[in-house]
């Protein structure tokens, strides 16, 4: 690793944080309201939540296998934010959402998120700690345990957001057999390709991290989405600059 890499990382982190705080301010949001492209998966998820509330069925959120001490945990963090929002949106349902994961720390965090959502929406009487569970410690045991959990609980929508491997195919097949709506997103390229073939809607790349913002979370989610767009534009410019420089023989 070059000695400059940590410094570049620190600068990117500070700039990103500064811009997120700037775009979160009410003044900027009022002056330049955020405009995002339409994400049909988010609209369908909202519809699925509405249907689940109406017909008294459950929404199942799967957070994958990564542990919080794993570098791949950012996708599970996005999954936790989405779970929190789903918990709030489905608060009027007879059956609160359930969450399965493949690691102990995610199980505890998801339990806490579900309790927090129930507390915020004054539905603590419906909260059951067992609705957040670790179904297995290896990828396949986790997948089979998650399928079995959703069969028990009358699931009508299945949301997979986290770090998955090929076992996600079994999970989605289980959901397909129940006739549930399937929305899936992952940081893993293998999982994304499987999701594209099997799920009803797939979140490609950064779309998964944008889901909390599309479900109408806090202003900071929307601000971070705007900053992501700015940085993506900068990266594209840098890549194009590098290509032109290389073709011109300057590099």
């Amino acid at each position: 690793m070059s000695p400059y890499e940590p410094l570049i990382g620190a600068v990117v982190f500070l700039v990103f944080s500064g811009l997120v705080l700037l775009f979160s301010s009410k003044k900027i949001r009022t002056k330049f309201p955020p405009v995002f492209r339409k994400l049909s998966a988010a609209q369908k998820l909202r519809r699925a939540i509405g249907l689940a509330v109406e017909d008294g069925s459950r929404i199942h959120v799967s957070l994958g296998n990564s542990s919080m001490i794993d570098p791949a945990n950012a996708s599970a963090l996005a999954g936790l934010s989405t779970l929190s929002r789903i918990g709030q949106l489905a608060s009027t349902s007879d059956l609160p959402p359930m969450c399965t994961s493949g690691s102990g720390d995610l199980q505890i965090l998801s339990q806490d998120v579900l309790r927090g959502s129930a507390s915020d929406t004054h539905t603590l009487s419906q909260f059951d700690p067992v609705l957040a569970r670790m179904t297995g410690v290896t990828p396949f045991s986790y997948a089979l345990g998650a399928i079995e959990s959703s069969q028990d609980s009358g699931t009508s929508a299945y949301v997979l957001m986290g770090d998955f491997g090929p076992e996600a195919g079994l999970l989605l097949d289980g959901a397909e057999n129940q006739g549930a709506y399937k929305l899936a997103g992952s940081n893993s390229l293998i999982a994304q390709s499987i999701f594209f073939a099997v799920a009803d809607d797939t979140l490609i790349g950064e779309e998964m991290f944008a889901m909390p913002a599309y479900l109408g979370s806090q202003a900071v989610h929307q601000a971070s989405l705007r900053v992501q767009d700015i940085l993506r534009f900068l990266i594209v410019l840098i890549l194009l600059g590098a290509v032109v420089s290389s073709l011109a023989g300057w590099l």
Partner: peptide, 24 residues
């Protein structure tokens, strides 16, 4: 796709580090 995921991961991390996202 990985560049998009990296930016998304950075955003998720920043949201937690500035205390706006609290999965606890």
């Amino acid at each position: 796709i990985l560049l998009g995921i990296a930016l998304g991961s950075l955003a998720a991390g920043v949201r937690i580090l500035i205390g706006s996202d609290k999965p606890y």
